[in-house]
Nucleic acid binder design. Structure first.
Length: 573
RNA sequence: GCCGGAGUAGCUCAGUGGUAGAGCACUUCAUUGGUAAUGAAGUGGUCGUGGGUUCAAUUCCCACCUCCGGCUCCA
């Protein structure tokens, strides 16, 4: 039996159980998911997770009855009558009116639902111990904030108890990779109530990690012909009125700050500043493309309920850049951008990501021909790189089409990181121009882009990707040197000093604790290399190397070890 | 923001209408170690914040703040 069919049937059985226990319930919809099923209910009184056990028990009773799933086709009129007390179902029936599809219903026991199916023939086809109700959640009816919020009950379901248990174990493991847990354990970042929600504090080790990432970007973008700029964190409200942000983005901008009778805004975007830098002198076609990059810290009001560790915060630093070019240059620039984005993601070890091409929405500015040209350029770049992507139809910003790349966290939740957006809005609003070959002033194309997205979010997904065991080049602490006893301390110190002089990030773990204890600590802190030195090493003038997760990998001279790690750092693996 | 859950030591958590406890961490002393926890003692808490009920609140009630899981929204 197809597991998806079982999951869908379980959704109906869940609804049946809820109907039995709370007869006044109004029913929403209940589909299968990737790992189970859910059903949305409008319940007479709130239920908590304690009630789930009761519902689950009832579901099992229903399954044991070996009830058949009966399918039947009915007319609009019959459907309306059948579901007369079910407002949500009536809404769905109304919409079916326009389609030619016949209305089908499924009955299991005394629960009848509007449904296309398919379903299991009988409840006996459902493994009794392969499913579990795991959580409740609020969910807006039909996914719209304007609609009432229903109670969603989530279940997971597998073909057997064994698979179910394996899945639960996997979730448990995934939770250990949670960047919020790792950030705490590895002392990378913290939050503080008194500072405020969504405002991370970077601890010393986290700051090192961040600087390494930033340095890497700095090198990479220099090679790619970018120029770095720096812009202020606040600007006169007039700037944001000109850019249109004050009109279109106000709900995400913090209240104005009054300074000398003028209003200033904390910047939610870096774009207008980059435009101003572009506009500060007359540009020739010979100057284009111009690429301005900035690690720009922005502040956005995010609804309290959406904040999430480092991956969704209220103050964050974008690895932002704006490319200003001619229409003719756009295609090549976009191709180079996609290439660069993929290169960067791969350098950080990401191979699986979801790519979306978002096209023209209903409300848009700019000419259709420009939209087509830009969308084509984005599409061609993806095709040339042989990348798999999905079209997000109408998902573009009102000012232009874009490519988004999402990376999943340890629990499979996608986070948008890379974004490449063509912008027809700002060049117009700020009257950007360049002097072309014919001496005429023309409007350039502007491409807005962030490769990592935000440093915060990226560090979040990066930590989950590596489960905190960062590759050598990214590790805030790369090497610990452990002298076995006090008599080896001087030798250890010498090694530390030599490594430090070569700019390795190294720490002496002196003899306060036992050797085993210090090694254990190093493993917990996910230190890539631990060098143990005792009598033998002092005598042989070597170091004993312990590699993270691998244990003792033998003895080498310091020079040999340095060569080994230099190589590893170079490869960035 | 909305629905549901939770906030007790630096961390992970137990506990109770009569002002609190464990393990780890930290400090001190002893131990001088050979590849994932040496032993002992000690320090440490306005029990998230503010109100209310009560002779008495960390515990009960209300509001707010923060966090967690979703929804909606997004880098």
């Amino acid at each position: 039996m197809n597991i998806k069919t079982i999951r869908h049937s379980l959704a109906h059985i869940l609804a049946h159980a809820v109907l039995d226990l709370y007869p006044e319930t109004k029913f929403g919809i209940g589909p299968a998911t990737e790992t189970g099923f859910y059903y949305d209910f409008d319940l007479p009184s709130p239920i908590s997770e304690k009630d789930l056990k009761k519902i689950e028990k009832r579901m099992k009773q229903i399954i044991r009855k070996n009830l058949p799933f009966k399918k039947k086709f009915i007319t609009q009129k019959e459907a309306k009558k059948l579901f007369r007390d079910q407002p949500y179902k009536l809404e769905l029936i109304k919409e079916l009116k326009n389609s030619k599809e016949k209305i089908s219903i499924y009955q299991v026991g005394n629960f009848v639902d509007l449904c296309r199916g398919p379903h299991v023939k009988s409840t006996k086809q459902i493994p009794l111990d392969g499913f579990k109700l795991i959580k409740t959640a609020g969910a807006y009816w039909r996914g719209s904030e304007k609609n009432p919020m229903l109670t969603r009950i989530y279940g997971i379901a597998f073909a057997s108890k064994k698979e179910l248990e394996e899945y639960l174990k996997q979730i448990e493991e995934a939770q250990k990779r949670d960047h919020r847990v790792l950030g705490q354990k590895l002392e990378l970042f913290m939050f503080d109530e008194e500072i405020g929600a969504g405002l991370p504090l970077w601890l010393p080790k986290g700051t090192i990690l961040r600087k390494i990432i930033e340095n890497y970007l700095y090198q990479e973008l220099n090679k790619a012909g970018y120029q770095w700029i720096i812009s202020p964190h606040i600007a006169n409200i007039q700037l944001w009125k000109t850019s249109g942000h004050w009109d279109f983005y106000r709900e995400n901008i913090y209240s104005p700050i009054k300074i000398d009778n003028e209003e200033y805004l904390l910047k939610p975007m870096n774009c207008p500043f980059h435009v101003k830098v572009y506009n500060h002198k007359i540009r020739s076609y010979k100057d284009l493309p111009i690429r301005f990059a900035e690690l720009g810290t922005v502040y956005r009001y995010e609804k309290s309920g959406v904040l999430h560790g480092l991956t969704r915060v209220r103050g964050f630093t974008q690895d932002d850049a704006h490319i200003i070019c001619t229409k003719e240059q756009m295609e090549k620039e976009i191709l180079n951008l996609v290439k660069l984005a993929i290169k960067v993601l791969k350098t950080f070890g990401f191979k699986d990501f979801e790519i979306y091409l978002a096209t023209r929405p209903k409300k848009f500015i700019g000419t259709i021909s420009n939209w087509q040209k830009a969308t084509k350029a984005l599409r061609q770049a993806l095709d040339k790189m042989k990348l798999k992507y999905e079209i997000d139809k109408g998902g573009g910003a009102f000012y232009g089409p874009k490519i988004d790349i999402k990376i999943k966290d340890s629990l499979g939740r996608p986070w948008q990181c890379t974004t490449i957006q063509v912008d027809f809005n700002l060049p117009q609003r700020f009257k950007m121009e360049y002097v072309d070959k014919d001496g005429k002033r023309k409007e350039p194309i502007m491409i807005h882009r962030a490769l990592l997205g935000s440093i915060e979010r990226f560090v979040g997904v990066l930590l989950e990707h590596y489960a905190g065991a960062l590759p050598l080049w990214l590790s805030p602490e790369q090497i610990w040197v452990i002298p076995v006893g006090a008599s080896h301390k001087n030798y250890a110190k010498k090694i530390v000093q030599e490594l430090q002089e070569m700019s390795f990030r190294v720490k002496l773990k002196d003899e306060k604790e036992t050797l085993s204890k210090r090694i254990r600590e190093g493993e917990i802190q996910k230190i890539p290399y631990i060098l143990v030195v005792g009598d033998k090493e002092v005598k042989s003038k070597k170091v004993r190397i312990r590699k993270r997760h691998k244990g003792d990998i033998g003895e080498k001279t310091l020079a040999e070890f340095i060569k080994l790690i230099q190589n590893e750092i170079k490869k960035r693996k």
